[in-house]
């Protein structure tokens, strides 16, 4: 695995707000324009070949981060650097700094420039029943990225690339599967097709958005093992978003725990799981079911649910639910600060 100095992905102070449409009444009452602050200042770096978990409940903003990284949404603020290129604007089909950054890219048209980078970053979606077009055959699904990126030199080579991708993902022999339609496959097989469709472009970064949460437990392990093997054998970097600490613990190197649009704790996975510093992380870990009744633990069950990201509490955004909050938490918004090498926490009490 080659190690370059440039990280594959740098996310710097990312904000993503979704404006809320105002009703006539709001306008008349001169209520201010409000927005859902889905991601509210997130920074992290992913090195080549690393697997980073973005862990959080729904409403934490983890999926939004993934969508912004891949240019499926336009960030409100902040920067995203992919392999050193500023791709913050790539959802708009262009990127200002792409032009100066690399002589190799200059002769290409704007769209081609974005495409050249986009080819290298792919996404795996949560719901394998929804992310495949029901009217395309498996072959067409996996071959489509090649067509989109015009990587189709010859029919035989196209077939071979599709075959390799499918068989890498455990759908062997490929001929047995590729004439079928998604409805004929099981959930696990479909998720393999989704992964094959991403792999056929030989990407360097995979954003995997809850890839196993819709699957049965017995099949989860297969998919996770496949992702792990892809990293081992091809050095693929994976950004894995999940609400499940147990699967995240199983195969990621580092873990970022998100709460209400912010990262509250970031560090090596094993360290975060064994010595969680943030009260939210501790609570999350304590409620993960352990598959052994002899090890039933004291659960720290937080009251209520993640607040609405329209009305973010002042001070530390976790304080209303925090079992360890002190009065200062109501006023001070803690920054992410290092507590150990490579281990950052955003909590006043740490």
């Amino acid at each position: 695995m080659e190690m370059r100095s440039t990280p594959i992905l740098q996310v710097d102070n990312l904000h993503k707000y979704f404006p809320i449409p105002r009703h006539v009444g709001d306008v008349l009452a001169r209520r201010p324009r409000r927005s859902v602050r889905a991601v509210d200042g997130v920074s992290f770096t992913v090195q080549r070949g690393e697997i980073l978990a973005l862990v959080g409940e729904s409403g934490s903003g983890k999926t939004t981060v993934g969508m912004n990284v891949l240019g499926l949404q336009q960030p409100t603020e902040g920067h995203i650097l992919f392999d050193g290129y500023d791709v913050t604007e790539w959802s708009r089909g262009h990127g200002a700094s792409l032009e100066a950054a690399d002589r190799f890219l200059v002769p290409l048209s704007r769209r081609r420039r974005v495409m050249t980078l986009r080819e290298r970053a792919q996404m795996i979606f949560q719901d394998p029943y929804e992310s495949l077009n029901p009217r395309q055959t498996i072959f067409d699904i996996v071959a489509e990225p090649l067509d989109i990126h015009r990587l189709t030199p010859s029919r035989t080579e196209r077939r071979e690339r599709v075959r390799t991708a499918l068989e890498t993902c455990g759908l062997a022999p490929a001929d047995h599967f590729w004439d079928r339609f998604p409805a004929e496959l099981s959930g696990g097989q479909r998720q393999r097709v989704v992964i094959a469709g991403a792999l056929v472009l030989e990407p360097e970064l995979l954003v995997a958005d809850e890839p196993v949460s819709m699957l049965d437990v017995s099949i989860r392990a297969e998919i996770l093992n496949l992702l792990r093997a892809l990293r081992r054998e091809r050095g693929i970097t994976i950004l894995y978003t999940t609400h499940d600490l147990a699967t995240a613990g199983f195969f990621t190197d580092r873990m970022a725990v998100m709460y209400l649009g912010r990262i509250v704790e970031l560090g090596p996975t094993v360290e975060v799981l064994s010595q969680p510093r943030h009260p939210y992380t501790r609570a999350l870990i304590s409620v993960v079911p352990v598959p052994n009744p002899r090890r039933r633990r004291q659960r720290v069950i937080l009251e209520g649910e993640i607040p609405n990201p329209i009305d973010i509490p002042p001070g530390c955004r976790f304080h209303p639910r925090c079992p360890e909050a002190i009065p200062a938490c109501r006023e001070m918004d803690p920054r992410l600060h290092p507590v150990a090498p490579g281990h950052d926490v955003a909590c006043l009490r740490v």
Binding site: I219, A221, E222, D244, A246, G249, F250, I285, N292
Partner: peptide, 30 residues
């Protein structure tokens, strides 16, 4: 959970990730 006898039960348990033992391997049921 501690002394399962049926191979299926055993495989199912091995396939279940345990947050307290993040390094352990996950067996899948092909």
């Amino acid at each position: 959970f501690n002394t399962p006898q049926h191979p299926y039960t055993r495989r199912l348990l091995e396939a279940f990730p345990d947050v307290e033992e993040p390094d352990s391997d996950l067996a899948s049921i092909p």
